[in-house]
């Protein structure tokens, strides 16, 4: 794994503070050294709850280093908005992928893996595997 070009991570939540906090948490737990680029895209541009294609597009562009972008979402319109943006073809950077993962645990796994230089497939796998982490 070469750490030259890191996979970018976008965190899409209905809430701005949730997306920002999860980004901060994931960066913090990835710890030490340089972490992969992470951008929150939470809520509406006016601060309300919802999903904004504009904020998602901007966040994805800001973390794109040419190694692909993994997008993690919370629910409902966040899922549907990213899917429809991917279907459009030109609204997200090339090699952007919607990752099927739990939002918080998946974000941590994705950022840790991307920071270690994992490629997009590795980041996606790590984030999805977070579904298997049982708590009882």
């Amino acid at each position: 794994m070469s750490g030259e070009r890191q996979v970018g991570i976008v965190l899409v939540s209905h809430s701005g503070p949730v997306a920002e906090s999860v980004a901060e948490l994931a960066r913090g737990l990835a710890a030490g050294g340089v972490t992969a680029p992470v951008a929150p895209a939470g809520g509406l541009p006016n601060g309300g709850l919802g999903t904004s294609a504009e904020l998602i597009g901007r966040a994805a562009a800001s973390v794109d280093r040419g190694a692909g972008v993994a997008v993690l979402v919370d629910l409902g319109s966040a899922v549907l908005t990213v899917k429809s943006m991917l279907a459009e073809g030109d609204e997200l950077p090339e090699n952007t992928r919607l990752v099927d993962a739990p939002f918080v645990e998946g974000a941590v796994a994705a950022v840790v893996t991307a920071s270690a230089g994992g490629d997009l497939a590795a980041v996606e796998a790590a984030a999805s595997e977070a579904y298997g982490y049982r708590k009882t």
């Binding site: 919802g50 999903t51 904004s52 294609a53 409902g76 319109s77 549907l80 908005t81």
Partner: peptide, 14 residues
């Protein structure tokens, strides 16, 4: 898709 902010945006947009 870019302005609605809820699930109806991507659905009607699509």
């Amino acid at each position: 898709i870019s302005t609605v902010g809820g699930a109806s945006g991507p659905l009607y947009g699509t």
